[in-house]
Design a protein around this nucleic acid. Structure first.
Lengths: 146, 146
DNA sequence: CCTTGACCTCAAGTTAAGTTGAGGTATTAG
DNA sequence: CTAATACCTCAACTTAACTTGAGGTCAAGG
């Protein structure tokens, strides 16, 4: 069965314009019918679902796109293809969770105290940046400022 | 001792333009010297530190501003004033951590499987939105789409 | 057949959080 | 005193992730 943009939008809970936008960004693909209207294969649903899930994890569309580059281009991705993607992201997610936990643990002690010294306070020194790289890579950055 | 923008920027690890921007947004304040240059009291350091810490938690400047509205306007905030702020955010942070943990736990099971059904899959149904409200309020939203 | 709703493209607008630049004034070190 | 920094304002630009609108075409039901 082929899907129209409207149906996909409805099923996925996104706007039609968002699907146009994703296509323009190369995140999804479509074929066209005789009248130039988009038609999708069923796997569009999972693809959009994965995009949405990744976004909830805090992953940018650019990173999602990079990760999608590892999916097979010739055949429809299998469950195991998607699994590979997800396991990479799981590592990122774990890192992000760990980071937020550290932040939480420093929070009470540090915000109220006088220690915001930029050199010693954990709120300053436990820094990180995620989602810039491809799948799974977690970059830790240390301020080192002043 | 009074601080110049340059010194504050250096100590806090932000650009001068960022301080201008924060002031314009009402997040920080300054007085001016005879030559119209900004001068800050020492508590600017903590204020900027708190902004930066909150941002790391994923809190928007708009929400930070709302939270700051609860700080005393007449006197310099005390350690306990800042503590109150931080405890509100700590709740938000816990909620965010919990959300990401749920997401992580559904991830492997769901991305690869065929369950992305919009109605049953946890990746769709465990949704949330944070940081829109003031201090501490955590809003949970359920998609309910299709 | 014809109307209505779904689509199409392309350009421009939106929000967040800053950054960059132009043109001009203050401060400070030598 | 003067040159080099540091500041000032205001406007415009940047990126991400979309949304909105204009002007026009397609498809489906009665």
């Amino acid at each position: 069965m082929e899907w129209t943009v409207g149906k996909v939008a409805q099923r996925c809970g996104v706007n039609v314009s968002t699907l146009h936008f994703y296509e323009q960004k190369g995140l999804i693909y479509s074929s066209r019918n005789a009248g130039n209207q988009r038609r999708y294969k069923a796997d569009i649903l999972r693809r959009v679902a994965v995009i949405k899930a990744a976004q909830k994890m805090g992953i940018s569309l650019a990173s999602i796109n990079k990760a999608f580059a590892n999916l097979p281009k010739q055949r429809t991705p299998t469950a195991s293809d998607w699994q590979k993607l997800s396991s990479g992201w799981q590592a990122e997610l774990n890192a992000r969770i760990a980071y937020l936990e550290r932040l939480r643990d420093s929070l009470t002690g540090c915000i109220g105290c006088g220690c915001l010294s930029m050199t010693r306070c954990p709120l300053y020194n436990k820094d990180d940046k995620m989602g810039a790289g491809g799948t799974g890579a977690v970059m830790l950055e240390r301020g080192g400022r002043i």
